[in-house]
Write a protein that binds this DNA or RNA. Structure first.
Lengths: 246, 246
DNA sequence: CGGTTCATTGACATATCTCAAGTGTAGTGG
DNA sequence: CCACTACACTTGAGATATGTCAATGAACCG
């Protein structure tokens, strides 16, 4: 975070950076951080800022994937569906994550905005050309893939082996950590997901999620306001309910 | 597969390839395929063939990860454990997959041979140096990571949303597909995993796995011999029991 | 042959799901 | 400002899939 600020200062004196990028919150996140000024210019020529409403699908399972995007603001759900409608969220992406599955024409999952979201989208062809020119770009994409792989595997443990109580606590802890990575501290935040989404992320039903949240509330592990706002007085305590090994 | 055979023929006339590699079954799989002769020589100087007994741990969760490896033969389980002993297998790796988590000092999971396994191991330092020299190497590692990510997400859907019956059928289908990718054909194979391992892979108990296998057998979807050998007369039929969308 | 490990089967317990009703809360229109 | 609907969430009662515990069987090995 410090570093981002310092770099931003430098950018002000660097007139080579495209205007749209110089003001971009994700200038150094996503894929843009590794690009040179000219590559950034090239990319920004084809880039389009878009605002996405919560619930609107950005790409569907089985559709052609013609775009990559940086998430500027908001949370995006990645999910998979069975033919009979059962659904599982397989990943959440937060700003300033990069979105898109390199080297694949067709999406194996659907991406949908969970909250109000801003993205900066560019055609896959441009990215794939830049990969050949910018040595650091593939490395950045590789790191993002590895990060997502680690997260997916962590979540497999949650899905396969934790109780409903632990699943819900793990989810709350995940969100709390994204808001503020400091361990054991008090936290307060709005849930980016509805109960239905949380259920789809945890492999549970809406009702079970609701009951477990109530249970955590009654035990004093969390407080809840307006059903979306959550207060965690002691996130170490939450951790214990989440079955997280530390 | 065709391609591998053709390349092997060429190798016979290419005396630059290290002897140990020229005879290697994974010569063009894993990471080796993208290396030049001199890079391969460099790598092979530090490489060590090892045979691993089933059940023996190759690396433990939280240990320092000092090695990468190509799997020459066999199946390796990647698993995560909670502090109270609950375990989840988060991935299976088959020959000629590459094993190892690039750019990370410490393993977030444990790797254990499921079957008799041969690997070709090399120190992480050598690989990381070669990444800087061989442009194709990081691309290969990146593709492997993306493949594992796709597999992990597919499995999350299985873990979170499928019934025990569908989970077991999905597992059998996964193994059947690895033996022979042809769709709808009859298949016969030995399970590389014990019932306990299958349970850990599916987020079930041993008893439930056993009951579901019995059920599939009684319905005629599979036949079982010696509890390890499985015959699938019609893998399309198996697919239907696996809740796989096609 | 006995001992060990692994797999199967049964009887019962229980966590989670299902179905149904009830409670907010926000938005809409009169 | 007050109905009125719509939607998301909560809560309850009962059903059920899966887990737990215990016994048995089958394969393997010294």
């Amino acid at each position: 975070m410090q570093i981002v600020v310092e770099h931003s200062r430098k950018d002000i004196h660097n007139s080579d950076i495209p205007v749209i990028c110089a003001a971009c919150e994700a200038r150094h996140g996503g894929v843009c951080g590794t690009l040179t000024a000219s590559q950034l210019t090239e990319l920004s020529r084809h880039a389009a800022r878009r605002r996405v409403e919560p619930g609107s699908e950005m790409i569907g399972q089985g559709e052609a994937a013609n775009n990559y995007a940086n998430i500027i603001r908001g949370v995006v759900k990645l999910s998979k569906m069975l033919s009979d409608g059962r659904q599982q969220i397989v990943g959440l992406q937060f700003a300033p994550d990069f979105m898109g599955r390199p080297f694949m024409r067709e999406s194996a999952l659907s991406a949908e905005a969970a909250t109000d979201t801003d993205v900066c989208a560019f055609p896959r062809a441009v990215i794939e050309r830049l990969v050949g020119e910018a040595p650091g770009l593939e490395h950045r994409l590789h790191e993002q893939a590895l990060k997502e792989l680690d997260e997916a595997r962590d979540w497999m443990l949650t899905l396969g082996r934790k109780t409903a109580q632990e699943k819900v606590a793990s989810f709350l802890y995940l969100i709390a950590t994204h808001v503020d990575p400091e361990k054991g501290a008090a936290k307060e935040f709005d849930l980016p997901l509805s109960r239905a989404d949380i259920a789809d992320y945890l492999g549970l039903t809406i009702e079970t999620v609701s009951r477990q949240i109530t249970k955590l509330r009654k035990e004093g592990v969390i407080r809840v306001e307006n059903s979306r706002r959550v207060i965690v007085p002691d996130s170490r305590r939450l951790t214990r309910h989440a079955g997280i090994d530390c």
